[in-house]
Design a protein around this nucleic acid. Structure first.
Length: 217
DNA sequence: AAGACGATATACT
DNA sequence: GTATATCGTCTTG
């Protein structure tokens, strides 16, 4: 009776399923649904693109240099939402993985809106097509109406405003991998995972590497 | 106390 | 293709 008037067809993911290495959690999350309810209504999306971030051994991770007030949720139990603010105007959302005390998370980069399309459109009026609504981490976070106050929300709690649901399973053979978007370090690890969809964001190389071409020689 | 720099989106040449 | 808005967080003095 948790979901007001709109019972989900899919079961909710458990904390135990997510308390695994971020790379395994990332693959698990592809095809899963994320459902966000607020006063304005409910939006549900199907995840098609994610990235794994680890802890002290991952120079691209927010947790590479230890625990701070910003990243502390990543050190907590799996299945919680880690929301952070970036570039002065955007929020991005992650699903915390691994166990309590060991940092790890999966960045949500792309999704298809499967329910609440009108509310999603109203939240992202600039989108030129429905496929673009949640294409990119900040757009995805935007259509769900997530911001600072959602940091730390438990996605495995049936009464939570944001819930993570098992979708139709994605076969391993359908999963594509590559380096993470916009990171200038650890480009050797293919920790970006996606399935074929128009809502997968376009690849962009890490800042310093791509910025150099015009200015030098 | 101050400065540098983003796990980006969008507009523009 | 690249230029830039915009500000919280972290690093350094």
């Amino acid at each position: 009776m948790s979901v007001a008037g709109n019972p989900s067809l899919f079961r909710q993911l458990s904390r135990a399923e997510l308390a695994v290495d971020p790379i395994d959690a990332a693959k698990l999350l592809l095809g899963c649904h994320l459902e966000s309810t607020s006063d304005a209504g409910t939006v549900r999306i199907r995840l098609v693109e994610v990235e794994a971030y680890r802890g002290g051994d991952d120079p691209a991770s927010h947790c590479y240099r230890g625990k701070t007030s910003r990243n502390e949720v990543m050190f907590g139990p799996a299945g919680h939402l880690y929301v952070y603010f970036v570039y002065g105007m955007h929020f991005c959302a992650n699903v915390v993985s691994l166990t309590d005390g060991v940092p790890g998370a999966v960045l949500l980069r792309g999704a298809e809106v499967v329910d609440g399309v009108e509310l999603a459109r109203s939240r992202r009026p600039a989108a030129r097509s429905d496929a673009e609504l949640a294409k990119g981490p900040a757009r995805l976070t935007g259509v769900l109406g997530l911001e600072r106050g959602h940091n730390g929300v438990d996605l495995t709690d049936p009464d939570s405003p944001v819930r993570l649901l098992a979708g139709d399973p994605v076969p391993e053979s359908a999963i594509r991998t590559g380096p993470r978007v916009g990171v200038a370090v650890a480009m050797d690890v293919p920790w970006r995972f996606w399935v074929d969809s128009p809502s997968v964001s376009t690849y962009r190389r890490g800042g310093k590497a791509s910025r150099r071409s015009t200015t030098s020689r």
